[in-house]
Design a protein around this nucleic acid. Structure first.
Length: 793
DNA sequence: TTAGGTTTAG
């Protein structure tokens, strides 16, 4: 029998394994070792639903954890089970079971990079002669019986409105407030008459939860091991607490750690992967519990107010308190009660910020990097109880610093002011510092963003003197030196036709159209001055220009679409899997999400296109952050269809894609299955638009430049998708950094408050063309094949 | 035991 269900009695296997089998550890599972008669033993940490492959073969995947290897980071391995064996295993395998896998085939794991598991996976099937022994403590079932079975220990969860004084309970909650773990003051403990007193200090974390009963519970958690406290990173995270003691304190229920307390923490965003953060090596987590998390996310999305996007340094305003996700690049001792952290987040604070004077020898961190980023780093002075933790953080770490005070401070004569950043002593309002792991999604996002900034290569800088460094790398541009440079070199450059000779503007104005010219001119003024007004949508078919629809319109269309309930007959087709929830509020809104499959399998979220019915604007944004593409749809009798084209038909990252109402003929969404069936679906907006019968509107910058050269003045239009500013018009409205970059480019081309003589020269190509305007032809000019110089953007 | 949410005052 290739799948055998056996018992563990008093910690030992009830029936020993055949003696010819040799146990193999994870480190032996690679090429070059003989795996004949070998077996691998591990505990089921995770299992996936039984699915069918393209050819109809049953497929079942489990993750086994090596219980002999607690130390290494990669101590789990994927096991892929095929055919009849998959079906049998899926019926009986439970979390926490011990599996022995014998006669397996070893193959490179294509997902090792993503899932962080072993570089190889095990493939097993009846055909290959594989054998799986399943050992279970919890189901006393006769060997080889694969009939219906009772499951692993069942935890009972108490909702927050049913807590009683003096009980120990299990519960779920959404984090409404938290203090990141900090070292408590500790207490003197009298150990014995001889050894005297020692100070015992635990880490403490205070967490306030709320659940759909709308009752709050504040928990005070202690543990000597920082890692054993819940890994909460932001308000809105969801926690599962096991064995928390409930007490009454000041007339309210309070949660406190009891012996055996354990916690799991999950990201609270709808659609985010359900991956528990925990310090426990082994924990139970069933499909049923996964569903609870998903339901709590949906409840939170529609019932709790979120604070909006986290503040970046570029959003800082005087007097505010804010949480900052950032990277530590330098640190220094200041005095006994304060410590300096130098951090950056890739944006620039719009106000002058203070620099805390420290001795150069006290400053820790990569000197070259500190110099290179000096204009975008800020000094945060942390006090008192935060000093000890701050000292221990390695430079390069990613942090979230909670409740930083941006304090406005004035010079003695009050003529100038600057912003000081303080992390004051104490833990009020959750003040504190949390070190984020590299796996954290916000850290991944920040790293990608910092990486995209394309910093000068620091390796080549090692040998340079500090004077040279000063001259070479002004990372965030000092406007004055920039202007000096621009007075010598043109601030725009040509991308083609280098051999064409310059023509004076006067000669151009006196010529007939159409013609092409190369010019050298200065930008006297431009419109619109508010750069966000320069972005429009363009239809290349009917050549119309449209304003970008208001977000409120989208919201209204979404609200209108919730009137049509999802049609369950359209769920779970050959090319997508569906899930549906009902919100717990009085609206009882139904939300359906359809995850498009590839090769019968669900892909990683970042490769997945999903369609959503009944979602709110906020939910859709959150999903778009996590998944490759989101398409809002509604049910008809026989297919899903797109919403009104005033709404974006597709969201990708933070870009909304619209279709031209005039030129589009929407097709049923099942047309998307043709892309899903491609070998590697790239989910490109142009291709999606094409199969859906949508004429895609392109984001474009439209600006009017008034150019002068001493012989005349001429208005030329800039019509640019991406080339001129080297910034995609589609991304500018949702990206602060790109907006700053564009503003800086315009400030360089046309510095405010400068005399004409001091403006930089621009080299441009322009073309003239005729437009029939009522009675007569008028000549217009358009800039082409020109881009802002590399060192301007 | 520690803290028990509700901003330092440098």
């Amino acid at each position: 029998m290739p799948v055998q269900l056996l018992k563990i009695v008093k910690g030992k296997f009830e029936i020993p394994l055949p003696s010819h089998l040799q146990k193999q550890s994870l480190e032996h599972l690679r090429e070059g070792f003989d795996h004949t008669n070998g077996y691998f033993q591990g505990i089921v940490a995770l299992s996936y639903p039984l699915t069918k492959l393209g050819d109809g073969t049953d497929f079942f995947k489990v993750v086994l954890q090596d219980m002999d290897d607690f130390c290494s980071r990669t101590n789990s391995i994927n096991v892929l089970i095929y055919g009849k064996m998959a079906e049998n295993c899926a019926k009986v395998i439970c979390h926490g079971d011990t599996l022995v896998v014998a006669e397996f085939k070893l193959a490179k794991s294509p997902t090792a990079k993503e899932d962080g598991r072993h570089n190889y996976h095990l493939e097993v099937s009846e055909e290959a002669g594989s054998v799986i022994y399943i050992y279970t403590k919890t189901r006393p079932t006769p060997a080889s019986e694969t009939a219906s079975l009772s499951v692993a220990p069942k935890y009972v969860y108490t909702s927050l409105n049913h807590l009683k004084d003096g009980t120990v309970v299990n519960l779920y909650g959404i984090v409404k407030f938290f203090k990141p773990p900090y070292l408590s003051k500790g207490t003197d403990v009298n150990i014995s008459h001889n050894s005297g007193r020692v100070l015992v200090a635990d880490y403490c974390s205070v967490v306030t939860l709320v659940d759909p009963s709308n009752v709050k519970l504040t928990c005070t958690l202690f543990n000597g091991n920082l890692d054993s406290l819940p890994k909460i990173y932001k308000v809105g995270d969801i926690v599962r607490f096991h064995r928390i003691k409930v007490r009454e304190y000041n007339g309210q229920m309070q949660g406190v750690t009891s012996a055996g307390f354990a916690s799991l923490t999950f990201d609270g965003s709808v659609g985010a992967p359900v991956i528990p953060r925990t310090s426990s090596r082994v924990y139970t987590f069933t499909d049923e519990e996964q569903k609870i998390i998903e339901e709590l996310r949906v409840w939170a999305a529609s019932n709790l107010t979120t604070s909006g996007p986290p503040a970046k340094l570029s959003d800082v305003q005087p007097m505010m308190f804010f949480d900052l996700t950032c990277q530590l690049i330098g640190k220094a001792k200041v005095d006994g009660s304060s410590f300096l952290l130098k951090v950056w987040d890739g944006t620039k604070c719009p106000y002058p910020t203070w620099k805390v004077p420290v001795e150069a020898r006290d400053l820790e961190g990569d000197k070259v990097l500190l110099h290179q980023l000096r204009e975008v780093t800020v000094d945060i002075l942390v006090y008192d109880n935060h000093v000890q933790l701050a000292k221990s953080i390695k430079t390069g770490s990613f942090l979230r610093i909670y409740s930083i005070h941006a304090k406005q401070a004035y010079a003695v004569d009050k003529s100038v002011s600057h912003i000081e950043f303080h992390l004051h002593g104490g833990t009020c309002y959750g003040r504190g510092i949390g070190v984020l792991p590299e796996s954290n999604l916000d850290v991944k996002e920040l790293k990608a963003f910092l990486h995209s900034m394309d910093l000068p290569d620091s390796q080549n800088m090692e040998s340079m003197s500090s004077v040279e460094l000063d001259d070479t790398f002004n990372y965030v541009t000092d406007l004055e030196s920039h202007l000096q440079r621009c007075q010598q070199l043109p601030a725009t450059v040509l991308t083609d036709h280098q051999d064409l000779k310059n023509t004076e503007l006067k000669a151009i104005l006196n010529s007939t159209a159409p013609k092409h010219y190369r010019i050298r001119a200065k930008l006297r003024t431009y419109k619109p001055q508010k750069l966000y007004q320069s972005v429009k949508l363009h239809c290349s078919k009917c050549n119309s220009l449209q304003e970008i629809p208001d977000g409120d319109d989208f919201d209204l269309i979404l609200q209108g679409s919730t009137i049509t309930a999802p049609n369950p007959e359209l769920h779970n087709t050959s090319w997508y899997n569906s899930v549906m929830w009902t919100t717990q509020d009085e609206k009882q809104r139904k939300i359906a999400i359809h995850f498009v499959k590839h090769d019968e399998m669900l892909q990683q979220p970042e490769d997945t296109l999903l369609m959503i019915e009944g979602g709110t604007l906020k939910e859709i944004w959150k999903l778009a952050e996590r998944f490759k593409c989101v398409i809002p749809v509604r049910s008809t009798e026989d297919d899903l269809e797109l919403l009104d084209l005033s709404a974006p038909f597709l969201l990708q990252g933070n870009v909304k894609y619209y279709g031209c109402k005039q030129c589009s003929t929407p097709k049923p969404v099942k047309s998307l299955s043709s892309i899903a069936a491609e070998q590697r679906p790239a989910w490109e907006p142009t291709e999606i638009a094409q199969v859906l019968g949508i004429e895609l509107l392109q984001y474009v910058f439209i600006m009017k430049f008034t150019l002068v050269d001493g012989t005349g003045a001429l208005n030329a239009y800039l019509f640019d998708y991406e080339k001129f500013f080297q910034i995609p018009a589609s991304e500018i409205l949702t990206n602060n950094f790109l907006q700053q970059k564009m503003q800086m480019a315009m400030n360089t081309l046309c510095p405010p408050g400068r005399k004409l003589d001091d403006l930089p020269w621009l080299e441009c190509f322009i073309k003239s063309y005729n437009v029939r305007d009522a009675m007569k032809d008028r000549v217009y000019y358009q800039i082409f094949d020109t881009t802002v110089a590399d060192d301007v953007v």
